[in-house]
Design a protein around this nucleic acid. Structure first.
Lengths: 337, 337
DNA sequence: CTGTTTACTGCAAACGTTTGCGATTTAGCT
DNA sequence: AGCTAAATCGCAAACGTTTGCAGTAAACAG
């Protein structure tokens, strides 16, 4: 492995000059710089990132932590899209990505051992015990999604319009005449579940209507569980006339349950999906969907984190990426006949 | 940030003793060891990984590179499953994961700059220009999937039974009476496409039958393209009676095309899917599937790579993870009436 | 009590960089 | 030519560890 000293010896200059030449800093004669660069090329020189990190106190790596999650949850295309967004910005800004899934120890230790310069926590849970430590220790951190308003501490976050989206979707369904609208949620420690349920309730309230608790079901974010819950709902004496499914993991389960009973969408039941998967287009009929711009969220998260690392602060602590309710053919007026 | 020197000063011992105590090496009095550990705890000490790496010439990170891939290709649950497998073994063995997507420079530079101790290349393409460099420079490397037999160089690899699976599936279809079997492939620079196409052809040949080139279609691994190609196939004067779809990205396109024409599965056309997604269970009818054990492949890849890093060599250079053809209801005898 | 092994301890070098500072050269002006 | 300012250059320290080696103390055997 070639080092700066070897280049220096071969070029007949001191190694501080080599360093300056390689980092194209000022204070080195053009001819020397040229010569150094040539030799570096020839020797296939690559700077030793650890040595560099040691003196500069910066390693150029973003930690991406995905807290303890089940295997089925990780199948969610959410993570792929997010990683793609994070990676693209990180690449452009000269950072690498360290991926940490299901790690059993504190997030902060990654930072304290100088493996990463900052951390983004994906699919953040309200009860994640390690976030307070990140805040206390001043670790550059971005959480996705953010905490509800008025939370006890303030961490930079990136969100899509979780609240507005669901609010719009429910309002839309209410306007179509639906009143018995089921909501297949995830666990209530997920910020997504919390915020989206709030929006669900608010949409009813703002129209002077009552939602019914029995139509609100917490899943474990798996297809299987969504299938089960949807079965329960359809077995009710007064089954819902519409259902909204919280993410790409639950939607297939919901659809499967509906299809397996031979129910027609939207004549017998309207369906609204939330997610980033474009599998929804596959369904028959195409699903009315809250299309979550996950890749964009990932890009923004990387951007904010890098700003946090480099400037020590960020201009916008809570970024919101706009999204949209895409109305397709799985929703219809109620009653339908 | 606490350092070893601070601990040393506080404990009143030399910092070599502290180092030995922390790495529980021999040669330090039990009482001192205890004291050191207490102080380390109290000071929230974390070893500086760069400093460690500098002297030990080992950073404890596996590079996971996903070569230039399109956004839609990365949606494939393949990657999630793989990362889960890699991560679980890496965690257990004390390694971290560096995720590199779509990087524009050579894979080897990651290693040369000491960012990683070794590299696994996912969804390796036959024409990836950076693999030879990894081989030449003796970088600990595992590719998934491997190269075809007799390839010009030999890189450790992990595969599922790509060949056998397709061979079995085609044989199964032939036994059902099918002769016009379409194959929706990916690009022919993908090792998956190459190997699986070989198996397709061999299955025909070994039964003394002829396959027809017109039923073999190369997609770009996208749902959209699969939809288009399936449309083309169904428009033929003699459309295929069965179709096999190469991965989780193409299958939805294939199904969508079939469904949108109101064709019945398996009465009008039999379908075999290849993939790791369990979305296939969602379809009606449930799909006959070559279930690819991607997470296992990921686990094996990490295991081999770590062995390569630590021992300098590995016992088994080409690991094959067994998989299975799961026959469900999307395949039937032909002709069906 | 002496000699020998064993367990512990600390010094200092090494890993490959960056960077402040002083020394030296070069360039620019009169 | 003589003076000043600017550009270039190299020395050496520093970053936080690990580790070989030599030295010291303790334990043990004779």
């Amino acid at each position: 492995m070639a080092t700066i000293k070897q280049i220096a010896k071969k070029a007949g200059v001191s190694y501080s000059s080599v360093s300056r030449a390689l980092n194209n800093q000022t204070g080195v004669r053009p001819e020397i710089r040229k010569k150094v660069l040539e030799i570096a090329q020839e020797l296939n020189y690559h700077p030793h990132s650890s040595a560099k990190a040691l003196v500069q106190n910066r390693i150029g790596v973003l930690g991406v932590v995905i807290p303890r999650t089940s295997e089925f949850a990780f199948q969610n295309p959410y993570y792929s899209h997010m990683l793609l967004g994070l990676s693209s910005v990180a690449n452009d800004m000269g950072y690498h990505l360290m991926l940490v899934i299901n790690q059993q120890q504190s997030h902060a230790s990654l930072y304290h051992s100088h493996l990463v310069d900052g951390i983004v926590v994906l699919a953040n849970r309200i009860d994640d015990p390690y976030i307070p430590e990140l805040v206390r220790d001043n670790v550059p951190t971005v959480v996705v999604p953010g905490y509800p308003d008025g939370w006890e501490f303030d961490v930079p976050s990136v969100n899509s319009e979780n609240y507005q989206d669901v609010y719009r979707a429910i309002t839309y369904l209410l306007n179509l005449g639906h009143r018995d609208i089921a909501f297949i949620l995830g666990g209530m420690n997920s910020n997504y579940s919390l915020v989206r349920l709030d929006a669900y309730k608010a949409a009813f309230r703002d129209k002077g209507l009552e939602y019914k608790d029995k139509y609100i079901k917490e899943s474990d974010f798996s297809k299987t569980d969504a299938f089960r819950l949807m079965g329960y709902l359809l077995n009710l004496p007064d089954p819902p006339s519409a259902v909204i499914s919280i993410n790409d993991a639950t939607t297939p389960g919901v659809l499967h349950q509906i299809n397996s009973r031979g129910l027609r969408i939207p004549e017998d039941i309207s369906v609204v999906a939330i997610g980033c998967s474009d599998l929804v287009d596959l369904t028959d009929p195409p699903l009315t969907t809250i299309k979550v711009p996950v890749t964009q969220v990932g890009r923004a998260a990387a951007r904010v984190l890098i700003e946090l690392i480099e400037k020590g602060d960020c201009r916008e602590r809570h970024v919101v990426i706009p999204s949209a309710l895409v109305v397709r053919e799985s929703t219809g007026v109620w009653p339908s006949s």
